[in-house]
Design a protein around this nucleic acid. Structure first.
Lengths: 193, 193
DNA sequence: ACCTGAACACCGTTCAAGT
DNA sequence: ACCTGAACACCGTTCAAGT
């Protein structure tokens, strides 16, 4: 006789993400998640393929949120202002969701990787802005330069890797400014005069 | 009665690093390492505090090698050539030692982090080059911009995160060129003329 | 002084049995 | 159709006992 589900994939992923952010990836066990949603560990396998599947779903949800966050940041006027806004939005998301963010580029099992379609969505706002700033032929390289810098900066910041003192905030705004100038190839830009 | 050691910390770290690079962090277990050096798992605790300690020692050794690699890359003539050489050396080390490299900025337990002194040594070649290129007041921010970009680029490359096609090699050399121009503040540089 | 088997507390996962 | 206890194969780690 059918019995109603006592939990759901949605609730499981929510609980898992909370545990991840609160206590770290090590603490994200099938036991801790099961306890959080009020079932026994074996029941989780009716909703997920296993722990790797859970981690991938958490990463996917975080990537979707980051995508929406980035889409909300572009205004569509000055591409240099848009690139600065994208960088700030990127960093603010990472600082607000450090452990879920770390999952996005984690060198984990392939099962953790977000799918190609979502990757495209994640790239689109930056790629469009980079094209307006650097021109069509350099758009992809410019976007890669920008995202590499942004990801490197926030992942080092989150890892506590800026350990020589100084002002990390200042280094971020310095980086944004220099990066924008570096990829700006518009005829009207200072470098072109 | 004392019995001679059948293995050594050195041999254990060597074996651990090999396993890490060959089969990944998951496969780096006390059992696999013990088997590789020819003892039983409990014996490892006479040489290490535990698995976290082993991982930290592997990361430390990799960081020392990376430091030497970077020190060997600077020529001390043109700072722009030095920065390009540092970027290339950084990337070549990461591509040759992907899993050990990933450990360096991994968001793992604090026990994994390399010590402050080694961090200074790791930073020195870049910081000196950045100072010659960007001037004393911007040296730290310029160095952070450069290392953020380099780390972000190689970690995304290693994670397989550049998935939109195009030429990753071209994106790297584009990034190096633009980054150098961006932080170059020398009076004789084009931007200053 | 180092190595070992046995033991402990934990993991992820499977599966037959319950409702 | 979902949930559960019991079981299995693994893990890191501890410790008394061996040499």
């Amino acid at each position: 006789m059918p019995t109603p589900a006592r939990t759901s994939t949605e609730a499981i992923v929510d609980a898992g993400r909370q545990i991840l952010e609160d206590r770290g990836l090590e603490a994200l066990t099938m036991q801790s998640v099961a306890r959080a949603v009020g079932v026994r560990p074996p029941s989780l396998y009716k909703h997920l393929r296993g722990r790797d599947d859970l981690v991938r779903r958490i990463a996917t949800r975080a990537a979707e949120e980051l995508g929406a966050h980035l889409e909300g940041a572009v205004q569509g006027r000055d591409p240099d202002a848009d690139l600065a806004a994208l960088a700030a939005a990127y960093r603010s998301f990472a600082l607000a969701n450090p452990r879920a963010y770390a999952l996005l580029f984690a060198p984990g099992p392939d099962d953790w990787r977000i799918d190609a379609e979502l990757n495209v969505r994640l790239s689109t706002p930056l790629l469009a802005t980079a094209e307006r700033l650097a021109g069509p032929s350099d758009a992809l390289s410019a976007a890669r330069t920008a995202v590499a810098w942004a990801h490197g900066f926030v992942s080092m910041e989150l890892a506590g890797a800026f350990r020589l003192g100084g002002d990390v905030e200042a280094a971020f705004s310095y980086g944004v400014r220099r990066l924008i100038a570096a990829v700006d190839a518009r005829p009207s830009s200072p470098a072109g005069i």
